[in-house]
Each structure stands twice: as structure tokens, then as C-alpha cells.
Nucleic acid binder design. Structure first.
Lengths: 226, 226
DNA sequence: CGAACCTTTGATCCATGTCAAGCGTGGTGG
DNA sequence: CCACCACGCTTGACATGGATCAAAGGTTCG
């Protein structure tokens, strides 16, 4: 199935946005759209065929599973984000939909070829990959030394920022994209500890829980930052 | 000072290796060499001028310091590696020499311009940045759920691999590039815990300590991997 | 209405942090 | 050449934050 870039919701934010219309249509021939339901897997670690994708709507998680079967969330992917492997011979991590998601999927070699044909595309991907690298290092810093309290507080603020349209100010009310268990996997904690921190923050008046996923940031200054 | 690529020790492994001689000489005009002694700082977080560099010899650490002054090592940089910021307006992290190191330094805008002039350079950097991203995620997975024992074991093996010339097999004898304290900062542990793990591994016959930094991998199979 | 699932809360335990001493080595000055 | 000191490493004793185990709400969906 071919792609209809004209109606793409991330038409002017995704990596391919730097291409002009003709180039984009040409690239679109190499890709296909795919819709994932919550919990469905896009790529599995070890898959021997390289592939990559741009996320049009929804959200993904990139995870690895260690020997004892525990899952670790390495990164979240938001709309306009890019995931996958263009060069390597196999996929390094699992990529799973957090909610219903829509993507443009490309084979690795096809997309790698496109970066040769359209140099600006390579540069745009380079920028984006560097951003991913900084995000990964930020998570590393957060989960490195910080206490459970600081980790949960940091994650809350980071998600409030991601949920806000203005990139600087955090949203006051928003829905968590992750369950307690997923949050725990991302922060290297347990479900119980995450839950206790939510309770503590609410008791101290920093936040208010609205249903399972809803959060109202009552007083961000009360959150113990690292 | 202009660069002499002809004698560069990483001439055929660094990002600029994909350029031909004329292109490389042209790029060299925009850069300058710099030598750092152990502990000297290359970039400081917050520096408002973007800059980047290729490491010719030695080793660097990329770190961030949290509010209570504790340092966290986010990544190590080995020869032929690339560090810094090409696009962003400021440096995100500190970069410090672990030992005497030699580099080619470029201003961010100058290098960004080079990626436009030489599309293959952008692609080479993209590959390299993706590798850095995977390394960062690997560290994230290692420090996420694993026990202190598993973290130290993982770090040992990873360094044995980095010290070996053949990329697959770990070196049997090598010197740690990091002090105990730096290892602790990288793994999110304390000096004491790292030291205890070394003692434990040696008692169990997995390794042998040779001086402060030297390690002999006696029986890697005894190391408790995650 | 009931079942499955997620979340919260409580009680207990243990790995790792913290505090405090010793130890070895290398450098410096007398 | 020795005495001393500074620094990084090791080792021990103890404290504690978060994991684990267990059970009781809440919510959602058939």
C-alpha cells in the first residue's frame, strides 16, 4: 500500500519534511503504512531484516528484555519520531505500541538508499538521532544516582513537558502514556514503589490523581528534583 | 594550527575516513588539533558555542553533574570516536580527558556546513551516532535492573572487548581506563561496592587484579551476566 | 453480576549505601 | 635515604531505601 503524504499528520515535523513534494512522493513508493493496536509489536530484537519507520500517530516504546525476563524501557517514541535500523543487519531492540498507532514503514536498505539520494534526509536524520541520543543520556542520568522519589518526579515532569504543546512549560493536566508497570520498567523500580511515590506526592499536595492515568500538576515546585 | 591527516592514527576509521584526500585536506582547514592532559576539560555543559571533535588518541568521558554535585558518566569515547554538538546552541554535557588525549576540534557551524558539502560525511556521522545511541541504551539496560554484581561484570566484559583488537573476543589482559570512583559513577554504584565486587570476582577465580588498573580475565564464564 | 486486571497499601527482608578504619604506593621535602 | 603525607583502594560494621511477599480495593468488560 502506498502512502498518502498529503494527509499525513506529521507531514511538516517528521524527518521526511525536508524533502519537497516530488521527492517525498518518490520516497513514499518504497514505504507502506501500518496500523498497530495497543501492545502489538512492530520490530522484535534479533529480527534479521533491517527496517525502520516514522510514527504518524500514537506512541511506541523501545524495550529490551534481560535474561530473567524482566523488561526495560529504553525510550519512548512520539509522533514524528523515527525508529529502527537502517544499516545494521538485525534489530537491536523490541518496539511495541503503547496505544493504537499509525506508521510509515520502510525496509532498511530502501531507506538507506534514500539517504544517499537525498542528502538533506541524512542530515535531518542525523539531527533527530542526536536528539534521541541526548534523550537517552538524560534518562541515563535520571536513573543513575537518583532516589526513587527523584526518578518518579523527573518522569512526571518530563511527561508533562511532552504532553504540552509549548515545549518549555509543562502541561498542568495530562494523561500518562504509561501504566504503573511500564513506568516502573522505565525507571528501574517496581510497580509498588512507583505507586507509593504517587501517593506521597499527592499527600504532599504536589499532584492530584484523576483516574488511573490522569495527572494534575498542582504544585510542581514541591516535586523533589535531582 | 592546521591538521596533518597523513599521519593521523585514525585516518581510516574516523568519520572523515569516507572523504577522499582532497576533501579531507579541505575539511582540515576548518579544524585544529588539541592535546589534553588527564583530567582536562574539552567541553563544559552549557558552553554557548557549539563545537565538536574527533578523538585521535587517548580516551574521553562524557558526564553530567546533578544538583548535589555527584557526577554521572554517560559515555566513554574511544579513538576515532566523535563528540560534541553540531547543531544545538549549547553543549549538553561535560567532556573530560581520562588520560592524555589528542583531538581534531571543529566549530559546530563549520562542521555542519561540511556535512552539507559532503553528503557522505553526514551519512557516516549518522551511522556513528546510531552506534552511540545503541551504546547508550546498552548502558541504560545494564544499569537499569541489574544487581551490582551484574553491572560490574558487564562493565568488565565491555571494557575487555573495547581493549581487544579483534572486536568479538574480549582481551584476556587489559588495563581499566577508569578509576574505581569513575567506574562507580558510570554504573550508579559506590566506590566501596565496586571494590567489593572486584574482590568477590577475584576470590571466585573469575579475574585476577594486577596492580590498580590491570585486569586478567581468568574465567569469564564465572562472571554473573544479566 | 462476576472475573480479570491494575493499583494501592502494609509488613518484612536484604542489597547496597554510609560511615569509619586500615593499607599500599608514589611523591616530596628534609 | 628516610620520614612523611596524600591519594586511591580495600575492608568491616551498621543503617536504610526499595524489593519482595501478601492482601485488599477499584475499574473495565463480558
Amino acid at each position: 500500500m502506498s502512502l498518502s503524504c498529503a494527509t499525513c499528520p506529521v507531514r511538516d515535523r517528521a524527518a521526511c519534511a525536508i524533502l519537497d513534494e516530488a521527492e517525498r512522493d518518490e520516497l513514499a513508493k518504497a514505504g507502506r503504512t501500518r496500523v498497530l493496536k495497543k501492545g502489538e509489536t512492530l520490530f522484535s530484537a534479533g529480527m534479521s531484516e533491517a527496517a525502520c519507520a516514522t510514527l504518524k500517530s500514537g506512541a511506541l516504546k523501545i524495550t529490551s528484555t534481560d535474561i530473567d525476563g524482566r523488561e526495560r524501557i529504553l525510550s519512548l517514541v512520539h509522533p514524528a519520531g523515527f525508529v529502527g535500523e537502517m544499516f545494521g543487519p538485525y534489530m537491536r531492540h523490541d518496539v511495541v505500541a503503547l496505544g493504537e498507532s499509525e506508521l510509515c514503514v520502510f525496509s532498511g536498505p530502501a531507506f538507506a538508499e534514500a539517504t544517499e539520494r537525498y542528502p538533506r534526509l541524512a542530515q535531518a536524520l542525523l539531527r533527530r538521532t542526536q536528539e534521541d541520543l541526548y534523550a537517552s543520556r538524560e534518562l541515563l542520568a535520571l536513573t543513575g544516582n537518583a532516589s526513587a522519589e527523584q526518578r518518579v518526579a523527573g518522569a512526571l515532569l518530563s511527561m508533562a513537558r511532552a504532553a504540552s504543546d509549548s515545549p518549555c512549560h509543562p502541561a498542568r493536566e495530562f494523561d500518562l502514556p504509561l501504566s504503573r508497570g511500564e513506568l516502573a520498567d522505565m525507571l528501574g523500580l517496581t510497580i509498588e514503589t512507583v505507586s507509593r511515590m504517587f501517593t506521597r506526592f499527592e499527600r504532599e499536595g504536589a499532584i492530584k490523581r484523576m483516574g488511573k492515568r490522569g495527572i494534575e500538576l498542582v504544585d510542581p515546585a514541591l516535586l523533589p528534583l535531582s
